[in-house]
Simulated scan of single mutants.
Amino acid sequence: MAVFQAALVNELEKLYKKKKALAALLLSLAVIVIGQIIIVGVRSGFGLRTAGSMEFPMLVLSVVVNTILPLFTALVTIDSFSGEFAHNNMRITLTRPVSRLKIFAAKITAISIFILATLLLLLFFSIMAGFIFNTNSATLDSFVRTVFSYIVSLFPMVVLALGIVLLTNLLKSGISVFFVSILIFLGLKVLGVFFSQYSSILMTTQLDWYNLFLMKSFPLAKIMRQFLIMLGSSIMLFTAGFYLFDKKEL
């Protein structure tokens, strides 16, 4: 366990020093600021009712999990695998007295922590912005649902990251992985529209899993079905990704 912790700390330090993590945070905060400016402008200019203090964080989440967060998750994931192979940094990592499984697991854990940290910071700043501009529309129930929605959004994002990890071990070039990831992401979005009856098995549709927790009648069966699909997908992607990672020669 101590060896894994050391590997994880090393991976987190690498992420901390990279500008992509900071760029993801700044761009996400820009979404909050621009979104709130638009909402205030619409309300003051047209006199229309806009998003309340707890509705605004959900608007931010719906935008971020379908655009910015998948993009930067892909960039961070590609940098953690393809980037290190390209710059021969992986050779240094693998010479340490740590098994490849622990290194692989540490990288996945570090990426998951990056995603969770981004979600929690977005949650904090979007709630603060919502309270500042819409102080009288919050309830305890809406607050709890909002917090829970941000937390559960971690799981589908990790599944997406595992899919990108698989691609990084299939393709040599990080640029190739990035563009293939975008094409697959857009392709799955289109498939979700035209084949809505099968959309629950698609990664892109699973990004909106949090919506199930916002329904008044708690759909436990749908939630568990989606959870089991994502769990099965994550196990298969992790296994396939590690198999390719373990077979790579430096």
Rank of each mutant, 00 (worst) to 15 (best):
N169C: 06
S233V: 08
P156Y: 04
N134L: 03
F227Q: 04
R100K: 13
F114Q: 06
S176A: 15
R100G: 04
W209C: 11
S149T: 01
K248W: 03
G47N: 08
A221H: 12
S199D: 08
Y16N: 12
S62G: 10
F81M: 06
T67V: 10
F179Y: 05
A86H: 10
M1G: 11
V144A: 14
F133S: 11
F124Y: 10
L116M: 07
K17Q: 12
N211S: 15
L94S: 00
S80H: 00
T239W: 10
G187F: 07
F245Y: 10
P57C: 02
V65M: 03
I184M: 01
L22N: 11
V152Q: 00
I175L: 15
L228F: 14
S217V: 15
M157Q: 13
A7W: 00
L27M: 14
F148M: 13
I78F: 04
A7V: 05
R100H: 05
G174R: 03
K247L: 07
M230E: 07
S44N: 13
K19D: 12
L25E: 04
L94M: 11
G130K: 03
S173H: 03
F218A: 05
S234E: 02
Y210S: 09
Y16A: 13
F72M: 06
N136Y: 14
I78E: 00
L231F: 14
T67D: 07
D246L: 12
L191C: 01
G83D: 05
L250W: 12
L101S: 15
S80M: 12
L191H: 04
F213S: 05
F238R: 03
I223D: 03
Y150P: 09
L22G: 05
L69C: 05
